[in-house]
Simulated assay, not measured.
Amino acid sequence: MNILVIENEIYLAQKIVSRLINDGHNCDHIDLPNTDAFTKEYDVILLSTSFPFNFCNNIIKKYNENCIILLVSYISDETVTLHIKSGAKDYIMKPFIMNELIRKIHHYKECKDINKELQKLRNYFQFTMLDINTTDVLSATSFPILIETNVQKHADKLVYELSIKMALPVIFISLSAKDWQNKINAIRRTSILYLTNYHTLRKCSKENLLKIIEKKNCIISTLEEELDFPYTKVEARNEKGLLANSNIMTIPDYVKAMVTSYQHKYTDTELSKKLGISRKSLWERRKKFDIEKRVLIS
């Protein structure tokens, strides 16, 4: 990191610079209130508040996107409070242990890196969801909630938007995992529990799940129509259907998705004909993918 030390106590400044250089950082030192000395970009600025207030405040306002740590001899509005409001990140009292200053520097470097990574992930998520229109607002007034959708990404975006609205983290659990029940039982109420692949469960497993999630902030997504769900249901369908998925599905995954999504609308004869397979092959795929046969809805 590039670090600038603005400190008029020469002995202290030399000690800080020596330690930072030994730790592998590039370090410059200024001992006079002269902004002309700023010749490059710095990741961290260590600013002594023994300089005039206006000089310190101007430095902070000009470089408030940097990590600015105040080196203070005493705490007051002018040395700490007003500077923090202007954009300084933290302060440390003189005399201080050098390791504590190093810890603060690394702490804010980590925070900056995490924020960059978070923004990158948010941008990527929003980019992948550009083709999903969520004009409906998912209400959080009555958990648990079931989202019936024909495109998984549609449900994902609704849950993401709700987590932002409620300022709650989301915990993802696939119901196709063998240990889904243990994972759910370990979740606290301070999170949104998002369960996918509800349509892959057998009837007895669904009944067990409904008992477990009764008092949890839980959202479930399914690619099937669920007639017996006792809690809030929301429909989030995309007219383009599976074609809205930007990823090419494998043939087994496609067949599995078609069977789970449309077996309640077509007879086995009709469904096998549309898939270009025999009724025996349809039966074999149900058995292979552990898909419970659904009653045809007339």
Score class of each variant (00 low, 15 high):
N217V: 02
M98K: 10
K274A: 01
G87L: 05
D77W: 10
K240V: 07
S139A: 15
A88V: 09
R279H: 14
V255Y: 15
N133P: 03
E214A: 15
R285A: 08
A140Q: 09
L158S: 01
L162P: 11
M98H: 04
C111A: 09
K120I: 10
K40N: 08
K89E: 11
T232A: 15
S176G: 09
I164R: 14
S261W: 04
F172G: 02
I291V: 12
L130V: 11
V295M: 10
F127L: 12
L201R: 07
N2V: 10
N34R: 09
K153N: 08
G24I: 05
K216Q: 11
I147V: 13
M166D: 05
E214I: 11
I45M: 12
I60K: 01
L242D: 00
S50H: 10
E239K: 14
L193F: 00
S86G: 10
T79Q: 04
H106G: 00
L130W: 06
V159M: 07
R189C: 08
K61F: 09
Y194M: 09
T35Y: 10
H25A: 08
I277F: 00
I145L: 05
T39W: 00
R285L: 12
L12K: 00
I213P: 01
K256P: 00
K287G: 02
I45F: 10
L275W: 05
K287F: 00
G87Y: 01
H25K: 06
A186T: 09
N54I: 04
I30T: 02
R122F: 12
A155R: 03
L243G: 07
E239T: 11
S139V: 05
E41S: 14
I68P: 06
C56S: 15
H107E: 01
I84T: 03
D90G: 12
R294T: 01
N8R: 04
P169C: 12
D179H: 14
K165E: 02
E207V: 06
D156T: 02
E65C: 07
C204Y: 15
T250S: 15
Y231R: 04
L209T: 07
L210S: 08
E292S: 08
E7C: 09
W180L: 10
S48P: 04
F229V: 05
A155F: 03
R103N: 13
Y254N: 05
I212Q: 11
K85F: 06
D23K: 12
H106D: 07
H106P: 00
L282R: 03
I219Y: 10
L121C: 10
I297E: 12
K104C: 09
P95L: 14
K61Y: 04
K165H: 08
